[in-house]
């Protein structure tokens, strides 16, 4: 399945089962945050609504929220990040995924309701435009 990106610099990818999605933060976001020293993961089984802050990250004295672009239920979180927050810097779009979510709706787009999901190319353009502001 193809990775989609949000304007909040998260990525989300639907698994082959068509209902479980994996959420993480983009490489762009990870490099902008700097060295991550703490990750607060969402609670397992938590019901979430698109746009909610479901966790947080701290890096270089900055607290940032982790937002979910989709509604659904958290079914698994990546506990490795609690032990080793710096993994988020080394592999944000791979091993350092944040949560697995059973989405509410038939597709990512339906579960994302209002927020726009971009493919990798559209997201690349979005980050380039944002940094030119």
């Amino acid at each position: 399945m193809e990775k989609k990106y949000t304007q909040d610099h998260e990525w989300i990818e639907l698994d082959t089962d068509g209902k479980t999605a994996t959420l993480g933060i983009s490489k762009h976001a990870a490099s902008a945050l700097g060295d991550v020293v703490y990750v607060e993961l969402p609670q397992d089984d938590m019901e979430i609504v698109a746009g909610d802050a479901i966790g947080s990250v701290e890096s270089v004295k900055s607290a940032s929220d982790i937002l979910t672009p989709v509604s659904g239920q958290v079914v698994e979180t990546n506990k490795i990040l609690e032990e080793k927050p710096s993994a988020l810097n080394s592999d944000p779009e791979g091993a350092a995924w944040i949560a697995k979510i059973v989405i509410e709706g038939a597709s990512l787009e339906e579960a994302a309701k209002d927020s726009e999901l971009m493919d990798a190319e559209a997201y690349r353009k979005f980050t380039e435009e944002a940094s030119e502001d």
Binding site: V60, S62, S64
Partner: peptide, 8 residues
């Protein structure tokens, strides 16, 4: 000292 809060 400095501290930050970053939101959307």
């Amino acid at each position: 000292g400095s501290a930050y809060k970053l939101t959307r």
